[in-house]
């Protein structure tokens, strides 16, 4: 008899634990279970997929575009696209939906000619009590945004995935369909470019 797929609640627990290969398999099984429910007519089950993956996808879109509004729009259009094509998912849903978001970000970057969009000051709470510290952080945040905006999209993507999303090179290679070596090269080039842009003020 086939083993029963883990429940969504179990999946949440797995997500909060350290990443293990078996956990990844369980995650995929949970996603498949949710997808089957959506395709069977349980539309509301799609919200489980949104909750499971929206945060890392939002951070990716925010890092790539530098604009919370654009990141939200990209997230929304990407999930709608994912819903419309849900029956076409082959393999891992998280990797599939990541590619939809990543491609949407690149399309946006390709079309946009603005290079400076900064995070809205009011969007995120500040963890700094000291006004001077807050001012320094605000300055660095804007300078980092400006520097990131000057990187080629492939370098920006690699840097964001490594440093902002905190992914391993192996995970990045899996999601982007390239090699660990190529990604290391991109991250290193991105760092060196950023260093060149920021060192005068911060080093």
């Amino acid at each position: 008899m086939a083993e029963r797929a883990p429940s969504v609640q179990q999946g949440v627990e797995i997500l909060s634990s350290a990443a293990q290969p078996s956990a990844a398999v369980d995650q995929a099984a949970i996603d498949q279970e949710i997808i089957a429910r959506v395709l069977a007519g349980e539309r509301e089950a799609f919200s489980s997929l949104i909750r499971r993956y929206s945060d890392p996808l939002y951070r990716h879109a925010l890092g790539m575009t530098g604009s919370p509004d654009v990141a939200e729009d990209i997230l929304q259009s990407s999930f709608i696209k994912a819903y419309e094509h849900l029956s076409e998912v082959r393999g891992r849903f998280d990797a599939w939906v990541f590619r939809i978001v990543a491609n949407a970000c690149k399309d946006w970057l390709k079309n946009i000619r603005r290079t400076h969009l900064s995070y809205d000051e009011d969007d995120q709470p500040s963890g700094y009590a000291n006004p001077d510290e807050e001012l320094d952080r605000s300055e660095l945040r804007d300078d980092l945004d400006r520097a990131l905006a000057q990187l080629a999209p492939s370098l920006r993507e690699a840097f964001i995935m490594k440093h902002v999303e905190g992914r391993s090179y192996e995970e990045m290679a899996d999601l982007l369909g390239t090699t660990v070596g190529a990604l290391k090269m991109r991250v290193h080039r991105a760092r060196e470019a950023l260093q060149g842009l920021l060192e005068e003020k911060y080093a």
């Binding site: 590619r99 999209p153 492939s154 982007l176």
Partner: peptide, 20 residues
């Protein structure tokens, strides 16, 4: 669109990027 495509990861090299 081919949603399974990974082209997006490779077709935007630095050469095609304009700003900066």
């Amino acid at each position: 669109d081919d949603l399974n495509s990974r082209k997006g990861g490779e077709d935007l090299s630095g050469e095609s990027w304009v700003p900066g």
